[in-house]
């Protein structure tokens, strides 16, 4: 990643995003990034981490320590990661209902929706 507060980003997220953040990819990562393709569309909003709190929902405010470039990098890299995960999910869709939704590559179940 490319900003000053990388260490304040969830370690799993930082590791996962690295191949999709321009300038960070090593040879192996570049292959993964390529497999992640170029996602169409965009992320409108993202929440990082889990919320264990049973009363309130907390959001990390580390985002305010990032530069504009840093924030854009995280969003773009996350889009790449999501596209990659769908492309490589290979899982059969689970029980999607009429409202839509599921797990894995999705798709087939929605034809019936």
């Amino acid at each position: 990643m490319t900003h000053d507060h990388d260490d304040l980003l969830d370690e799993r997220l930082r590791r996962a995003l690295a191949p999709f953040a321009s300038g960070d990819a090593d040879a192996g990562d570049a292959e993964i990034a390529e497999a992640g393709a170029r996602p169409r569309g965009r992320i409108l909003r993202m929440r990082m981490g889990f919320n264990p709190n049973s009363s309130s929902v907390g959001t990390t405010v580390v985002v305010f320590l990032w530069t504009m470039i840093g924030a854009s990098t995280v969003l773009a890299a996350t889009a790449g990661l999501l596209a990659y995960r769908f492309a490589n999910a290979g899982a059969s869709p689970d029980e999607a209902d009429e409202g839509g939704g599921g797990e894995g590559a999705g798709g087939e179940e929605e034809a019936a929706a």
């Binding site: 996962a16 996350t78 596209a83 769908f86 929605e110």
Partner: peptide, 19 residues
Amino acid sequence: DPPVLAHVDRDFIRGVGIA
């Protein structure tokens, strides 16, 4: 893993193969 929840637009949904 990593824990992310992302709101994405319709193009994104279509782009990952969801109808």
